[in-house]
């Protein structure tokens, strides 16, 4: 192996690592705010990737209809849970947010049709289609499970994952999709050629990370979310609606998933079930950070990307085994640290 190959592998690893970092952030965010170990995070990636690829190709992606199905189900759950004190105003708001939004998005996508569009518009449409799925899923599945143990939420998340995979197959079919690179040109830095796609990935990761940090540090909503993450009971006592916090967290997670999908689909062919393994690598990173630290998660994500790139060169058929086995030493260190800990609160 010479330096060129090494540089190429490292660049490849950093690009994938950036995406794992985004997914890791989403997982940490969801876990801290809702105590949910959100296995379906990767499915949002597949949904985002396929939605974007189909939009680019001028098709109407199936997720547009799926979003309407989710919205309608969430509406039904919401109205049923409040069936004793329904007011016309409440029904109207609920219909607007849970049925109006998906139908409006559907209409926009249908009107735009097959005409070629700028990349950013398709990116925005992808976020608009996949992003709201997060809060809808929360309303349907996780909000009624409020107060359940981490384990129960975990099992529910796994059930959601199974359903999302099947829905992915139903709405996208078994064919994989690939989209053209986000930026076609490449940049030459001395001996290193950085592809435009990689640049787009780095730029997006930096932008999203900065935006998330600003959201948490500067806005009241962000601070409320942070408060819910640190101490849910305390947050409720000072008047923060933890369900709203949770919905925002789910919306952010779905958005991050969709963006990650858009970033990854020009690099590899994505199928309806490709998301799981990608999401799991974000998980490996999030676990490095103890499902609590954004910084460690970010660093770990890049390490996972690089290890994966090197493994695919040296022992390609054992790539997955090597990456997932990385978790085990981390878990061992964690367990050694909490040697005397009781897990009674779980």
């Amino acid at each position: 192996m010479d330096a060129t190959i090494l540089l190429f592998l490292v660049q490849d690893g950093l690009t994938n690592g950036a995406i794992y970092a985004l997914l890791g952030f989403a997982l940490v965010l969801l876990f801290t705010v809702t105590r949910t170990i959100f296995i379906p995070q990767g499915d949002f990636v597949a949904y985002g990737a396929l939605t974007y690829a189909l939009l680019r190709a001028g098709h109407l992606p199936g997720t547009v209809k799926l979003l309407a199905v989710f919205g309608a189900t969430a509406l039904a759950v919401e109205l049923w849970s409040r069936r004793r004190d329904l007011t016309p105003g409440f029904i109207a708001t609920q219909c607007a947010t849970k049925l109006g939004v998906p139908l409006a998005i559907w209409a926009v996508v249908a009107v735009l049709g097959a005409a070629p569009r700028p990349v950013l518009l398709d990116l925005a449409l992808t976020i608009a289609i996949v992003g709201p799925m997060g809060p809808y899923l929360y309303r349907i599945v996780f909000q009624p499970l409020g107060g359940a143990t981490v384990l129960t939420l975990f099992i529910a998340a796994v059930a959601v994952h199974i359903a999302l995979i099947a829905l992915g197959l139903a709405f996208f079919g078994p064919e994989g999709q690939r989209a053209p690179a986000l930026i076609a040109t490449s940049l030459k830095l001395g001996p290193v050629v950085v592809s435009g796609q990689s640049l787009a990935v780095y730029a997006t990761t930096i932008l999203l990370t900065a935006a998330l940090s600003a959201f948490f540090a500067l806005t009241l909503r962000g601070k409320a979310l942070h408060a819910s993450a640190v101490n849910a009971l305390g947050a409720r006592l000072v008047g923060i609606d933890t369900h709203v916090s949770a919905k925002i967290a789910f919306a952010l997670a779905a958005t991050i998933g969709a963006v990650s999908g858009v970033l990854i689909v020009p690099m590899t062919t994505i199928y309806y079930d490709s998301g799981f393994v990608i999401g799991l690598k974000g998980f490996v990173a999030a676990i490095f950070g103890g499902l609590g630290s954004f910084i460690i998660t970010g660093i770990a994500a890049f390490s996972v990307g690089i290890v994966e790139a090197l493994a695919s060169f040296f022992a390609s058929s054992f790539k997955e085994i090597i990456v997932f086995s990385l978790i085990i030493p981390v878990l061992l260190v964690r367990s050694a640290r909490s040697h005397h800990g009781d897990d009674e609160d779980h």
Binding site: I37, I327, L331, R334, S335, D343
Partner: peptide, 13 residues
């Protein structure tokens, strides 16, 4: 020996 939710995650790994 893994505490809490690390245990199921370990089994997944």
């Amino acid at each position: 020996r893994l505490p809490g939710f690390y245990l199921p995650l370990g089994t997944i790994a």
